[in-house]
Design a protein around this nucleic acid. Structure first.
Lengths: 113, 113
DNA sequence: CAAGGTACTTTGCAATACAAAGTACTATTA
DNA sequence: TAATAGTACTTTGTATTGCAAAGTACCTTG
């Protein structure tokens, strides 16, 4: 069975999003703590389409890396929520990634001509 | 064996690059035809680290998608080279991706606050 | 207690970047 | 001409990870 290349615009858009998801999550959390649904709506409002199956594992990875931690909070309308916030290390990473992102967009711009 | 999260800065940088590699390649080819080594040095000059094992399969995928084609050219110092250039469709895709990239950087910027 | 909504988790698959090894052509040098 | 080095393209195997979809669990409402 021959491999078929799924090269198309929507796929490329998705690829772009992948690379900066961490940065985007850190940025949103830089505004204050939030739980997964908050993050999902903030990211979607910014046209950064994300689904649960992507976000939850990513939050777990970032938490394991020490960038985030969370506290449980009871909800009036459902199960308890994990409210994530930046750790001190997460703040440093956010600032590193912001710098990285600037350098990166410059690099892409330099290829325009 | 427990999965260990490789969440670190270098990995995130690599993720960022992945998403825009197609765009960068199209941009370089927008300046004129080029073969793989040309592309590698242009991309590296722009700090977009890429290795052969990444570039060659990607060029093949883009060619299969109809974005690129190539012609063979003899070389005085080695085996013949595949000179890639944008197809008409590739030009359209490049302009689409440029627009996409603008919208995308705006979206990321909107998350800053 | 059944149904529905919310929140978090898990599983399986597909896409793909990369390292590393492989194939092949040309020029140089002994 | 045989060996070596340089260049160019290809292939293979592995690891990462986004996503769809299904699963688990908690809470409220009728």
């Amino acid at each position: 069975m021959k491999y078929v290349c799924p090269m198309n615009m929507e796929n490329v858009r998705a690829q772009m999003r992948k690379g900066v998801l961490e940065l985007c999550i850190l940025r949103v959390l830089g505004r204050g703590e939030a739980y997964a649904s908050d993050l999902l709506s903030d990211l979607r409002n910014a046209d950064m389409l994300v689904v649960e199956g992507t976000l939850y594992p990513l939050l777990t990875r970032m938490k394991n890396a020490g960038w985030l931690d969370y506290r449980w909070e009871e909800s009036k309308s459902g199960p308890p929520r994990k409210y994530y916030r930046l750790t001190e290390q997460g703040l440093v990473i956010l600032s590193d990634l912001n710098r990285e992102w600037l350098a990166f967009t410059d690099a892409v711009a330099s290829l325009s001509h």
